[in-house]
Design a protein around this nucleic acid. Structure first.
Length: 865
DNA sequence: GCAAGGTC
């Protein structure tokens, strides 16, 4: 059998392109975590069997080990010296397993990851997954390609090199620095400010070397606007009547900031009473057609001209790409590759009802070779791939597609050419002028009409000619502050300062919006909030470095030394981390300076929220603060208890938790089918049973209720054996969809229902019952909890008007006929053998109290029952 | 609940 060669690309689309180019399209493709394309061919002069597959971006990402994950027990300062661990970015995709399986039996590994630093780093992630490094006799190759075209792919195959460890380690360094700095500052700020103020309205008060300078740009503009002092100015405009035109002339001095001096000049001119033509100049001006469209420029146009935010614009572009209407939308390049098929692309648009005529004219008259632009070596500029109409795409996608087509056609059109005539006049020693414009060649502006040059007609003059002044105006004006930063300007600033990448710029902008630091207002202008302003002004007071754009370039500069092999990876990381650690210590020490700004803007916790429920420690009432992050505040104990987000919270019949005496609350998710569940504020924040997060495996990723790390135990997850609200008491039977338990929604009357404590499965119970409750008995057949139904007298299905019925919802014929699955696939008696309404036979958890651990813990030990 | 970087 021929030896095998495994090739790995950064994304499925590149794997496909490489396999197609090398096999000439003769390959077989099979599914896996990502597709694998196979074919036979020659490699280094020998016949081999090729397998081409891909990862999906980074395989791994860095984080802190579990013992540093708890916000309460970890001092953020310790994070700087903490170890970091790599784990799979998307565990569910099983990329690592996929690579390891595919690498089995292969003698060569060819790395086709993108040719940038991140790609180089992913190379080593791939090597690690395949185990190639540690296996003798196996050879690793790096393909260096500057475009994903057949020519470049073949060229790269003939000049394979080795992966560059230095570049990869530079990325490792960046990851560690970003993680430690970002997380340490974020945790400290969040705990400090959310523990003090009740109306900050952000779940997390984050810091990051990209997002913070991004916010800094918006706040800088805000401060410029606020500190702007308008100044009055005056301008002089003589008017002439000439050949039937009234012309308003402009002053060569443009404007003066002194009224008296302006008046003086006016008098000089008035005394003369006429203007003399002293110069006529005419020149041809060329307005260049655009270069190819890259991602950042697309995002800028989308925001400023189409009103789409970067996030939406990318979503639309990706959809257009997967549907085959445009080329790959993530690229830095504005230069088309030499092999670009202009004719083919034009041909695809030739029948379009909107531009068809224009395209056919380009094809028949001969299109222009595009301007050169820059080639970043990634993907060709964004171009249309096939013709579409508004009906096919829908309004928003159509707008974006339309722009991409117009831009593409613009790049192949002639430049716009026009003549510009300037007539200069003199009067009373002062110079004035007027300008006329006449378009000679519309060129690309006929397909991009918003860039068109306006035609300005002026009559003909001859030099030396004298013309009477009909009147003179002195216009008064005042200087204007700049407007708030537009999103498009922000994208430019980020790009210029090296903050974020084409893919991450939208994410950073989205972040500062979501965290409530800025708001997008009319015209997509970014107006900072009180929170955003307080943060940036706070950094400016304590350590301006923290919010300046240089912070990113400083890090980039340091890791560039690693990339170039001029400095050792661990020494650089150590050095940079040490500097940030010092900054952090100073920041913490000086936090009162920032806090003074917060004090002026926000209300302390004690003044926020409304009284809701009793604290189990001091038995006084606590306040509920509904703004993000939703939480309870006990003013006596000065403790905060976070509550589930995005829903309503009410007192639950003044019942208390038997473990800690806190009053129970009921949380209802929004919407008519939003489920409700009781929870104890103390248990929710301090789950009493170790390992509760992992007890049901997928609990954190189940879409229904998001549970935080180390927090988030509602009663329906509580394994307390006797409390009437616990999963043990309220659980009825196993969920037919997942490993969860169906529990009774205690406040769902009259539309009684069960819901799964892990997934979205919902089961409706007999409607109109007065009361439905669980009993302590369970079904001898299937182990489900026996329920008690008290039917309405008028609608009871029972004989002789009886209302009370007790039975198992799966085995009792009457009840089974009345239950109905709302969400989920099936609800059948097959589920019965998995029934586990009560705690019997459950595997894997051990209820361990922690009464002895902490002195202040009011909770009894589980063993005390 | 945390960063920034890939990509879907």
């Amino acid at each position: 059998m021929a030896p095998k060669v495994l090739m790995v690309a950064e994304k499925p689309s590149i794997a496909l392109a490489i396999a197609s180019a090398l096999s000439g399209g003769r390959m077989s493709t099979r599914r896996g975590s990502t597709e694998v394309h196979e074919f036979d061919g020659m490699f280094l002069g020998f016949p081999v069997h090729y397998k081409v597959t891909s990862v999906i971006g980074h395989v791994f990402s860095v984080d802190f080990p579990a013992r540093f994950q708890d916000w309460n027990s970890t001092n953020p300062l310790d994070l700087f010296d903490a170890p970091i661990v790599k784990s799979e970015s998307t565990p569910k995709a099983h990329i690592c397993r996929h690579l390891s399986q595919e690498a089995r039996g292969c003698g060569h590994l060819v790395l086709w990851l993108d040719c940038d630093r991140e790609g180089e780093n992913i190379c080593f992630e791939v090597i690690e997954c395949t185990g190639f490094q540690s296996t003798p006799g196996k050879k690793v190759h790096r393909a260096r390609f500057s475009a994903v075209t057949e020519k470049d792919i073949l060229k790269a195959m003939n000049s394979l090199v080795e992966p560059n460890k230095n570049e990869a380690q530079a990325v490792d360094a960046r990851q560690e620095i970003d993680l430690k700095v970002g997380v340490a500052f974020t945790r400290f700020q969040t705990s400090y400010f959310n523990g003090k103020y009740g109306n900050l309205d952000s779940r997390v008060i984050s810091y990051g070397p990209c997002q913070t300078p991004t916010l800094g740009f918006c706040v800088r503009r805000h401060l410029q606007i606020n500190t702007f002092k308008p100044e009055k100015f005056w301008t002089l405009h003589p008017y002439i009547m000439y050949k039937g035109y009234e012309l308003k002339l402009d002053w060569q001095r443009h404007r003066l900031f002194d009224s008296d001096v302006t008046q003086m000049f006016r008098n000089f001119v008035k005394e003369d009473g006429f203007l003399k033509v002293i110069g006529i100049s005419e020149k041809q001006v060329s307005k260049g057609r655009p270069t190819g469209l890259n991602t950042v420029n697309l995002l800028k146009v989308a925001s400023s001209a189409l009103g789409f935010g970067p996030q939406l614009a990318m979503q639309l572009a990706e959809r257009l790409y997967t549907q085959g209407f445009i080329s790959y939308p993530r690229t830095e390049s504005t230069a088309y590759p030499a092999s670009f098929d202009y004719k083919g692309t034009l041909g695809a648009l030739a029948r379009n009802p909107v531009w068809g005529d224009y395209v056919q004219q380009l094809l028949s008259d001969g299109y222009h070779k595009p301007r050169s632009g820059t080639d970043a070596g990634d993907h060709p500029p964004i171009t249309p791939m096939s013709s579409a109409t508004e009906n096919i795409l829908g309004h928003d996608a159509w707008k974006l597609y339309q722009y991409i087509c117009q831009h593409f056609l613009g790049t192949l059109s002639p430049d716009c050419k026009y003549t510009r005539i300037k007539i200069e006049f003199e009067s009373g020693g002062e110079s004035f002028y007027c300008v006329g414009q006449h378009v000679l060649v519309k060129g690309f502006t006929s397909i991009m009409p918003w860039l068109a040059v306006t035609e300005i007609n002026i009559p003909q003059f001859t030099e030396g000619q004298k013309i009477d002044i009909s009147r003179i105006e002195v216009d008064e004006g005042s200087t204007q502050p700049p407007d708030y930063l537009s999103e498009s300007e922000l994208i430019s600033l980020m790009e210029e300062n090296g903050i974020g990448t084409d893919a991450s710029i939208p994410v950073h902008i989205n972040n500062i919006c979501e965290r409530n630091y800025v708001q997008v207002q009319a015209g997509r202008r970014l107006v900072p909030t009180a929170l955003g302003i307080s943060l940036i002004r706070g950094y400016q007071l304590i350590d301006p470095d923290l919010c300046l754009p240089d912070i990113r370039s400083f890090i980039e500069h340091q890791i560039a030394l690693v990339a170039k092999g001029q400095a050792d990876h661990s020494l650089v990381v150590e050095h940079v981390i040490e500097q940030f650690k010092r900054k952090f210590i100073y920041f913490v020490k000086q936090i009162e300076n920032m806090d003074a700004l917060f004090e002026a803007e926000f209300s302390p916790l004690s003044d926020s929220g409304r009284v809701l429920s009793k604290c189990g420690k001091c038995l006084r009432y606590m306040k509920h603060i509904p703004t993000q992050p939703s939480r309870l505040y006990c003013g006596t104990c000065e403790e905060i208890y976070y509550t589930p987000p995005k829903g309503t919270i009410k007192l639950y019949k003044e019942l208390t938790c038997p473990l800690d005496n806190f009053e129970l609350l009921i949380f209802s998710m929004p919407g008519p089918e939003g489920k409700s569940f009781p929870f104890c504020p103390y248990c929710y924040n301090n789950p009493p049973f170790e390992g509760i997060d992992n007890l049901f495996g997928a609990s954190k990723s189940s879409g229904s209720v998001k549970l935080g790390k180390g927090a988030g135990m509602p009663c329906f997850l509580c394994p307390h054996p006797t409390c009437q609200h616990s999963m043990i008491s309220q659980g009825v039977c196993a969920c037919p969809e997942c490993d969860g338990t169906l529990v009774l929604d205690p406040v769902s009357a009259p539309r009684w229902r069960l819901y799964c404590n892990m997934c979205n499965c919902l089961v409706s119970l007999p409607e109109g019952a007065h009361r439905i409750s669980t009993t302590r008995d369970h079904c001898p057949e299937c182990d489900s909890t026996i329920i008690e139904v008290d039917f309405n007298k008028k609608t009871t299905p029972l004989k002789d008007g009886a209302t009370l019925h007790i039975g198992c919802i799966l085995c009792d014929e009457l009840l089974y006929s009345l239950v109905e699955m709302k969400h989920g696939k099936s609800f059948s008696r097959k589920a019965r053998h998995r029934g586990r309404g009560r705690g019997r036979g459950r595997r894997g958890y051990s209820g361990r109290g922690r009464g002895g651990k902490k002195q202040h813990d009011p909770r009894m030990s589980f063993r005390d029952f």
